[in-house]
Amino acid sequence: MATKPTKQIIRPYGDRRDDGVVQLSFTLPVPLSEKAKEAAAVFARKMGFSDVKVAAAERAADTYTFFIVYARTQHSLDYAEIDVPEVVVKKLGFDDLNVLIKEKVGRRIVVFGACTGTDTHTVGIDAILNMKGYAGDYGLERYPWFEAFNLGSQVPNEELIKRAMARNADAILVSQVVTQRDVHKDNSRQFIDAAKAAGIHGKTLLLLGGPRVDLKLALELGFDVGFGPGTKPSDVANYIVHQVLQKEGKEDKNVHWEGEPK
Protein backbone atom coordinates (compact mmCIF):
# COMPACT_ATOMS: atom_id res chain seq x y z
CA MET A 1 0.00 0.00 0.00
CA ALA A 2 1.12 3.52 -0.76
CA THR A 3 1.79 5.77 2.22
CA LYS A 4 0.96 9.14 0.69
CA PRO A 5 -0.88 11.56 3.01
CA THR A 6 -4.47 10.42 3.36
CA LYS A 7 -7.40 12.72 3.27
CA GLN A 8 -9.16 13.21 6.54
CA ILE A 9 -12.60 14.62 5.82
CA ILE A 10 -14.39 15.87 8.91
CA ARG A 11 -17.63 17.58 9.82
CA PRO A 12 -18.94 18.77 13.17
CA TYR A 13 -19.88 15.87 15.43
CA GLY A 14 -23.26 15.91 17.16
CA ASP A 15 -23.97 12.36 18.24
CA ARG A 16 -22.88 10.45 15.11
CA ARG A 17 -19.80 10.71 12.99
CA ASP A 18 -20.29 13.20 10.15
CA ASP A 19 -23.81 14.21 11.13
CA GLY A 20 -22.68 17.85 10.82
CA VAL A 21 -24.86 19.05 13.70
CA VAL A 22 -24.30 22.61 14.79
CA GLN A 23 -25.89 24.56 17.60
CA LEU A 24 -26.69 28.25 17.09
CA SER A 25 -28.24 30.96 19.16
CA PHE A 26 -29.15 34.46 18.09
CA THR A 27 -31.72 37.18 18.54
CA LEU A 28 -33.92 38.75 15.86
CA PRO A 29 -35.43 42.20 16.40
CA VAL A 30 -39.03 41.12 15.90
CA PRO A 31 -41.83 40.06 18.26
CA LEU A 32 -42.25 36.36 18.95
CA SER A 33 -44.63 34.77 16.43
CA GLU A 34 -44.86 31.87 13.99
CA LYS A 35 -43.53 34.25 11.38
CA ALA A 36 -40.53 35.03 13.58
CA LYS A 37 -39.76 31.33 14.00
CA GLU A 38 -39.89 30.81 10.27
CA ALA A 39 -37.61 33.82 9.85
CA ALA A 40 -35.09 32.15 12.17
CA ALA A 41 -35.24 28.96 10.10
CA VAL A 42 -34.81 30.93 6.86
CA PHE A 43 -31.85 32.70 8.38
CA ALA A 44 -30.22 29.39 9.28
CA ARG A 45 -30.87 27.96 5.79
CA LYS A 46 -29.35 31.11 4.27
CA MET A 47 -26.22 30.32 6.25
CA GLY A 48 -26.10 27.02 4.40
CA PHE A 49 -27.65 24.75 7.02
CA SER A 50 -30.20 22.04 6.40
CA ASP A 51 -32.52 20.05 8.69
CA VAL A 52 -33.07 23.26 10.59
CA LYS A 53 -34.83 22.81 13.93
CA VAL A 54 -35.80 25.96 15.81
CA ALA A 55 -35.55 24.38 19.24
CA ALA A 56 -36.47 27.44 21.26
CA ALA A 57 -38.05 30.77 20.36
CA GLU A 58 -38.22 32.94 23.45
CA ARG A 59 -39.78 36.33 23.93
CA ALA A 60 -36.67 38.15 25.16
CA ALA A 61 -38.63 41.44 25.08
CA ASP A 62 -41.64 42.92 23.29
CA THR A 63 -39.85 43.28 20.00
CA TYR A 64 -36.97 40.83 20.36
CA THR A 65 -37.02 37.06 20.01
CA PHE A 66 -34.18 34.83 21.14
CA PHE A 67 -33.65 31.57 19.23
CA ILE A 68 -31.79 28.37 19.86
CA VAL A 69 -31.44 26.45 16.64
CA TYR A 70 -29.98 23.04 15.72
CA ALA A 71 -29.13 22.34 12.12
CA ARG A 72 -26.85 20.26 9.94
CA THR A 73 -24.09 21.64 7.82
CA GLN A 74 -23.21 20.12 4.45
CA HIS A 75 -19.75 21.60 4.63
CA SER A 76 -16.75 19.49 5.41
CA LEU A 77 -13.04 19.96 5.37
CA ASP A 78 -9.89 17.96 4.91
CA TYR A 79 -8.17 18.05 8.28
CA ALA A 80 -4.94 16.82 6.66
CA GLU A 81 -4.78 20.05 4.71
CA ILE A 82 -4.97 22.31 7.76
CA ASP A 83 -1.51 23.76 7.95
CA VAL A 84 -0.47 24.97 11.37
CA PRO A 85 3.09 24.67 12.70
CA GLU A 86 2.93 21.68 14.98
CA VAL A 87 3.94 21.28 18.56
CA VAL A 88 7.60 20.62 19.04
CA VAL A 89 8.14 21.09 22.74
CA LYS A 90 5.74 20.09 25.43
CA LYS A 91 4.32 22.97 27.44
CA LEU A 92 5.95 22.94 30.85
CA GLY A 93 4.08 23.09 34.14
CA PHE A 94 4.89 25.26 37.13
CA ASP A 95 7.67 23.16 38.65
CA ASP A 96 9.37 22.16 35.39
CA LEU A 97 9.34 25.72 34.13
CA ASN A 98 10.97 27.00 37.31
CA VAL A 99 13.66 24.35 36.96
CA LEU A 100 14.22 25.32 33.32
CA ILE A 101 14.67 29.01 34.23
CA LYS A 102 16.96 28.14 37.11
CA GLU A 103 19.15 25.84 35.03
CA LYS A 104 19.20 27.54 31.65
CA VAL A 105 18.53 31.23 32.27
CA GLY A 106 20.24 31.20 35.65
CA ARG A 107 18.51 34.32 37.00
CA ARG A 108 14.99 35.51 37.80
CA ILE A 109 13.07 36.73 34.77
CA VAL A 110 11.68 40.23 35.37
CA VAL A 111 8.18 40.97 34.13
CA PHE A 112 6.12 44.17 34.38
CA GLY A 113 2.43 44.35 33.61
CA ALA A 114 -0.40 46.85 33.72
CA CYS A 115 -3.73 47.78 32.32
CA THR A 116 -2.68 50.98 30.57
CA GLY A 117 -4.48 54.06 29.32
CA THR A 118 -7.95 54.78 30.66
CA ASP A 119 -8.82 51.12 31.08
CA THR A 120 -9.76 50.32 34.67
CA HIS A 121 -10.35 46.60 34.25
CA THR A 122 -7.56 44.67 35.91
CA VAL A 123 -9.25 41.28 35.62
CA GLY A 124 -6.98 40.19 32.75
CA ILE A 125 -3.64 41.34 34.09
CA ASP A 126 -4.55 40.08 37.57
CA ALA A 127 -5.39 36.65 36.19
CA ILE A 128 -1.95 36.39 34.59
CA LEU A 129 0.25 38.06 37.19
CA ASN A 130 -1.37 37.77 40.62
CA MET A 131 -0.25 35.03 42.94
CA LYS A 132 -3.61 33.35 42.59
CA GLY A 133 -3.62 33.05 38.82
CA TYR A 134 -6.64 31.88 36.87
CA ALA A 135 -8.63 28.68 36.60
CA GLY A 136 -6.30 26.81 38.92
CA ASP A 137 -3.19 27.92 37.01
CA TYR A 138 -0.78 29.94 39.18
CA GLY A 139 0.01 33.55 38.30
CA LEU A 140 3.56 34.69 37.54
CA GLU A 141 3.99 36.19 41.02
CA ARG A 142 3.86 32.67 42.38
CA TYR A 143 6.80 31.47 40.28
CA PRO A 144 9.97 31.76 42.37
CA TRP A 145 11.97 32.26 39.16
CA PHE A 146 9.85 35.13 37.91
CA GLU A 147 9.96 38.58 39.44
CA ALA A 148 6.56 39.96 38.50
CA PHE A 149 5.27 43.49 39.04
CA ASN A 150 1.60 44.23 38.52
CA LEU A 151 1.11 48.01 38.38
CA GLY A 152 -2.69 47.80 38.21
CA SER A 153 -5.04 49.90 36.12
CA GLN A 154 -5.03 53.28 34.40
CA VAL A 155 -1.26 53.30 34.25
CA PRO A 156 0.10 55.69 31.62
CA ASN A 157 2.05 53.79 28.92
CA GLU A 158 5.15 55.90 29.56
CA GLU A 159 5.00 55.16 33.28
CA LEU A 160 4.88 51.40 32.67
CA ILE A 161 7.84 51.61 30.30
CA LYS A 162 9.83 53.81 32.70
CA ARG A 163 9.26 51.48 35.64
CA ALA A 164 10.10 48.41 33.55
CA MET A 165 13.30 49.96 32.23
CA ALA A 166 14.40 50.90 35.73
CA ARG A 167 14.36 47.19 36.64
CA ASN A 168 15.76 46.08 33.30
CA ALA A 169 12.66 44.01 32.61
CA ASP A 170 12.71 41.07 30.21
CA ALA A 171 9.07 41.48 29.30
CA ILE A 172 6.26 44.01 29.51
CA LEU A 173 2.63 42.89 29.54
CA VAL A 174 -0.04 45.33 28.40
CA SER A 175 -3.63 44.39 29.13
CA GLN A 176 -6.52 45.99 27.27
CA VAL A 177 -10.04 45.01 28.23
CA VAL A 178 -12.21 47.91 27.14
CA THR A 179 -12.64 47.80 23.36
CA GLN A 180 -15.42 50.31 22.62
CA ARG A 181 -14.62 52.28 19.49
CA ASP A 182 -11.33 50.42 19.30
CA VAL A 183 -9.85 52.36 22.21
CA HIS A 184 -7.64 49.32 22.90
CA LYS A 185 -5.99 49.65 19.50
CA ASP A 186 -5.38 53.38 19.83
CA ASN A 187 -3.85 52.95 23.26
CA SER A 188 -1.77 49.96 22.13
CA ARG A 189 -0.37 51.92 19.21
CA GLN A 190 0.53 54.71 21.59
CA PHE A 191 2.31 52.16 23.79
CA ILE A 192 4.37 50.95 20.85
CA ASP A 193 5.24 54.56 19.90
CA ALA A 194 6.36 55.16 23.48
CA ALA A 195 8.38 51.91 23.48
CA LYS A 196 10.11 52.97 20.27
CA ALA A 197 10.83 56.40 21.71
CA ALA A 198 12.32 54.75 24.78
CA GLY A 199 14.44 52.47 22.60
CA ILE A 200 13.15 49.18 23.98
CA HIS A 201 11.07 48.12 20.97
CA GLY A 202 12.66 44.98 19.51
CA LYS A 203 14.67 44.48 22.72
CA THR A 204 12.29 44.00 25.62
CA LEU A 205 9.53 41.44 24.93
CA LEU A 206 6.25 43.29 24.46
CA LEU A 207 3.11 41.27 25.12
CA LEU A 208 -0.47 42.38 24.49
CA GLY A 209 -3.41 40.65 26.12
CA GLY A 210 -7.16 41.04 26.30
CA PRO A 211 -10.50 39.53 25.33
CA ARG A 212 -10.36 40.98 21.81
CA VAL A 213 -6.67 40.43 21.25
CA ASP A 214 -5.15 37.77 19.00
CA LEU A 215 -1.68 37.16 17.62
CA LYS A 216 -2.47 38.80 14.27
CA LEU A 217 -3.72 42.02 15.84
CA ALA A 218 -0.81 42.16 18.28
CA LEU A 219 1.74 41.71 15.49
CA GLU A 220 0.03 44.36 13.36
CA LEU A 221 0.22 46.80 16.23
CA GLY A 222 3.92 46.11 16.72
CA PHE A 223 3.90 43.77 19.73
CA ASP A 224 5.94 40.57 19.84
CA VAL A 225 2.89 38.48 20.68
CA GLY A 226 -0.77 38.65 21.62
CA PHE A 227 -2.80 36.55 24.02
CA GLY A 228 -6.59 36.32 23.78
CA PRO A 229 -9.41 34.92 25.93
CA GLY A 230 -8.77 31.68 27.78
CA THR A 231 -5.03 32.31 28.11
CA LYS A 232 -3.57 30.78 31.25
CA PRO A 233 -0.68 32.29 33.18
CA SER A 234 1.40 29.22 32.29
CA ASP A 235 0.92 29.98 28.56
CA VAL A 236 2.42 33.41 29.09
CA ALA A 237 5.16 32.00 31.32
CA ASN A 238 6.17 29.39 28.74
CA TYR A 239 6.23 31.99 25.99
CA ILE A 240 8.45 34.35 27.96
CA VAL A 241 10.91 31.65 29.03
CA HIS A 242 11.35 30.30 25.49
CA GLN A 243 11.76 33.80 24.07
CA VAL A 244 14.33 34.74 26.70
CA LEU A 245 16.23 31.51 25.97
CA GLN A 246 16.11 32.18 22.24
CA LYS A 247 17.21 35.78 22.69
CA GLU A 248 20.15 34.65 24.78
CA GLY A 249 21.07 32.07 22.13
CA LYS A 250 20.38 29.18 24.51
CA GLU A 251 17.61 27.69 22.39
CA ASP A 252 17.08 27.31 18.66
CA LYS A 253 14.87 29.98 17.12
CA ASN A 254 12.68 27.33 15.51
CA VAL A 255 11.59 25.73 18.73
CA HIS A 256 7.85 25.73 19.14
CA TRP A 257 5.84 24.50 22.05
CA GLU A 258 2.37 23.46 23.03
CA GLY A 259 0.09 26.44 23.76
CA GLU A 260 2.23 28.86 21.78
CA PRO A 261 0.11 31.69 20.33
CA LYS A 262 -0.60 31.15 16.65
Binding site: S25, F26, T27, E58, A60, A61, Y64, T179, P211, P229
Partner: peptide, 16 residues
Amino acid sequence: EAMHTPLLADRYVALK
Protein backbone atom coordinates in the same frame (compact mmCIF):
# COMPACT_ATOMS: atom_id res chain seq x y z
CA GLU B 1 -18.90 38.15 31.33
CA ALA B 2 -15.37 37.25 30.25
CA MET B 3 -15.96 38.33 26.64
CA HIS B 4 -18.00 41.43 25.90
CA THR B 5 -20.65 43.78 27.27
CA PRO B 6 -23.85 41.74 27.57
CA LEU B 7 -25.81 40.92 24.46
CA LEU B 8 -29.55 41.46 24.74
CA ALA B 9 -30.08 37.70 24.87
CA ASP B 10 -27.47 37.28 27.64
CA ARG B 11 -29.61 39.40 29.93
CA TYR B 12 -32.70 37.47 28.98
CA VAL B 13 -31.07 34.13 29.75
CA ALA B 14 -29.73 35.39 33.09
CA LEU B 15 -33.10 36.85 34.11
CA LYS B 16 -34.99 33.69 33.18
